[in-house]
Design a binder for these strands. Sequence first.
DNA 1: TTGCGTGCAAAGGTTTTGCATGGCA
DNA 2: TGCCATGCAAAACCTTTGCACGCAA
Lengths: 138, 138
Amino acid sequence: MPPKSGYHTRAQEEMLAYLRSRPGVHHTAAEIRDHFSAGDNPIGTATIYRQLERFVAEGIVRKYVLGVGESACYAYAEQAEDCASHFHCKCEACGRLIHLDCEDLKAIRTHLLDHHDFAWNAGKTVFYGICGDCRKKG
Amino acid sequence: MPPKSGYHTRAQEEMLAYLRSRPGVHHTAAEIRDHFSAGDNPIGTATIYRQLERFVAEGIVRKYVLGVGESACYAYAEQAEDCASHFHCKCEACGRLIHLDCEDLKAIRTHLLDHHDFAWNAGKTVFYGICGDCRKKG
DNA sequence: TTGCGTGCAAAGGTTTTGCATGGCA
DNA sequence: TGCCATGCAAAACCTTTGCACGCAA
């Protein structure tokens, strides 16, 4: 899925190929920049951010804000993932980001819309809490 | 509910009194600083952050992360609010933060715990989406 | 040729930290 | 007195922006 408008450039193509090769995997802007800095064809930080912003605007990539001061995370959004049954949970203890596929949770969207007039964007929402592993450890 | 450890100081007392007088209202660190800068007894930025950090650690105040680059929000956490029936929705269009009291949504916590082994912290989670007003406007 | 994309550097904003001073117990 | 809290300034951090140059169409 190439961008819908604007020029087709090398930086854009390589970033998209990289993200697409790791669907569902979260990358920070710095990680993406470092990935390309390591090899040939480094890409400037500003370009990283500008392309990511474009990808997000076009719905190709999702952006997740996990905390103040922390970097935002970006992940390639597959068509299959794009349905409302994909959720994210972040463990406040170990920091792990957990992916959840759950049909039941889709009911939340209906409830929020019908009862609270709010069109929920599940893809951007992160559920905070404590994962099972961390609870066992105390 | 005074802090459990450390000294009892003027800055601490005034900040807590201010937050407590507005339960459930969200303030950024800058807003709190400006509030005290306006009157007598201004409080330094570093102290604002250090006290807020302490309040959050002690559970007196809740911290909300709404976006990268945006300031974090802090709100006094009443006992009554502390139950799981208080939720937050942020409109991605107008930026408004909507408070929601909904018994039905509490079922999410049970579901996440029983089916996904995840102890959800509803107080910290923000639901992103589009509010009714903004949808009407297109 | 036209104008968008890129890179560098600098700015922007929020939050944290170092260090000397002041206040609480 | 001993130790913590405070304030100022500077640093740290992520992200955005200005500007000149380069590349796509």
